[in-house]
C-alpha cells in the first residue's frame, strides 16, 4: 500500500514538472512606435585622439500619422574643432551591403557647441551620421553629447551619449623621411627636418633616420644622435645634436590610426604610459615596413610610438607617430 502511494506521488510530481517545463511563453507583438522616437550608436572604436573624428549614427522616426521630422541637432559638451558636422543625408544599406545616401536636409550649421540639420524633404524616418572632430581643448577631458530631434507636431526627443574620455596622445601621420636629407626627427614637434633646420634647433632632434644597404641587417634605422658611431656610419651630424633617445623595437603592432585604417589594433594612452623602457638601447636598426619602435626622449618628457608605414630601398620611408606627454 505504502509503495503504491509513493509511486502515485512520484507520477503526479513528474507530470507537474513536465507541464511546467513545457509551458510556452506567448509571443506578443511589440507595440508600434506611437510617438517621436530616437536611438544612437557610436561607430568609432579605439582611443579618441585630438584632431581625429568621432562618428555617431543617430536614428529618428515618427509615425506618419503624427507628422514629419523638422530638424535634428547635436550638442557637445565641448565645441568640436573645424570639420565637425552632422550629415544632411540619411543612409540605408542596400541588398549588396552598400550604404546608399538620400539627401534629406540642408547642410548642417554649427554654432558653438551645437550642430543642426533642418529637414528639407517630407520624411518621418532618417539616420544621420555625426562627425565630431576632437578639439585641442578636449585633450585629457571627457566629452558627452546630446542628440535631439524635433517633429512637426511640436514634440522633441533626445538621446545622451558619453561621456567619452579623450586621449592625451597626439597623432601625426605619413611623415616622409629620407637618408641624408629629411632625416632628423623631433618628437616634441612631431616633425622631420633637414640638416639646416636641425642645426637651428638641435635640442629638439631626438632621432636620425638612415639607410645602409651594408651590412644587410642594417637597412632602415632610427638612431639617436648620441648613439655609438658604429650605428651612425658615414653620418656627420649637424652641430649640437647630442640627445640619447631610448628605443624599443616592436613587430606586429600595426596601430589602426597610424596604419591608415588598416588592421584592428590600437595603441592607447596606457600602452605609452606603461611600456618598460628601462635599459633600452638608443638605436633601432633593421626596421621593416609595418614594424614600430617605442620611443622615450632623453628628458623623459615624451614617449612615442613610431610606426613604419612603408620603406623604399632607395633610402626613404614613410613613418607615423603617436606621442604621449609624460
Amino acid at each position: 500500500m505504502r509503495n503504491k502511494n509513493i509511486q502515485f506521488s512520484f507520477l503526479v510530481i513528474m507530470m507537474l514538472a513536465s507541464m511546467v517545463a513545457c509551458k510556452k511563453e506567448e509571443y506578443t507583438i511589440p507595440d508600434p512606435v506611437s510617438q517621436l522616437t530616437n536611438d544612437c550608436i557610436k561607430r568609432t572604436i579605439g582611443p579618441s585622439i585630438v584632431s581625429l573624428p568621432l562618428e555617431f549614427a543617430y536614428a529618428m522616426a515618427i509615425p506618419k500619422s503624427s507628422g514629419k521630422l523638422v530638424s535634428a541637432q547635436v550638442e557637445a559638451s565641448i565645441a568640436g574643432a573645424s570639420g565637425t558636422y552632422l550629415e544632411n543625408r540619411s543612409f540605408y544599406t542596400n541588398s549588396s551591403g552598400v550604404d546608399v545616401p538620400v539627401l534629406v536636409g540642408s547642410p548642417s550649421l554649427t554654432v558653438d557647441k551645437s550642430t543642426k540639420v533642418t529637414y528639407s524633404i517630407d520624411t518621418n524616418a532618417a539616420t544621420l551620421r555625426y562627425y565630431y572632430v576632437i578639439p585641442e581643448e578636449a585633450r585629457g577631458q571627457s566629452v558627452s553629447f546630446t542628440f535631439s530631434v524635433t517633429s512637426s507636431d511640436g514634440k522633441t526627443a533626445s538621446y545622451k551619449m558619453g561621456p567619452y574620455t579623450i586621449s592625451k596622445m597626439s597623432i601625426k601621420r605619413n611623415l616622409a623621411v629620407s637618408n641624408g636629407v629629411n632625416a632628423y626627427i623631433s618628437i616634441e614637434d612631431m616633425a622631420v627636418y633637414n640638416a639646416a633646420a636641425a642645426a637651428a634647433a638641435p635640442g629638439k632632434i631626438d632621432l636620425v633616420y638612415l639607410f645602409r644597404a651594408v651590412p644587410t641587417t642594417f637597412t632602415h634605422a632610427l638612431v639617436s644622435p648620441a648613439a655609438d658611431a658604429a650605428y651612425l656610419p658615414g653620418v656627420t651630424l649637424p652641430s649640437g645634436l647630442n640627445r640619447s633617445t631610448k628605443l624599443r623595437k616592436v613587430f606586429n603592432l600595426q596601430d589602426r590610426n597610424l596604419a591608415n585604417l588598416q588592421f584592428g589594433i590600437y595603441v592607447d594612452d596606457v600602452d605609452l604610459r606603461d611600456v618598460d623602457m628601462v635599459d633600452m638601447p638608443n638605436f633601432a636598426i633593421g626596421l621593416r615596413a609595418e614594424a614600430g619602435v617605442w620611443v622615450e626622449t632623453a628628458d623623459k618628457k615624451y614617449r612615442a610610438y613610431i610606426f613604419v608605414n612603408s620603406i623604399n630601398a632607395a633610402g626613404t620611408a614613410v613613418i607615423s607617430m603617436l606621442r604621449y606627454t609624460l
Binding site: P215, T217, Y231, D279, M280, P281
Partner: peptide, 9 residues
Amino acid sequence: VLFGTDLKN
C-alpha cells in the same frame, strides 16, 4: 647574433 643586437634585452 646579428649586427646591432641589443644583448641587454
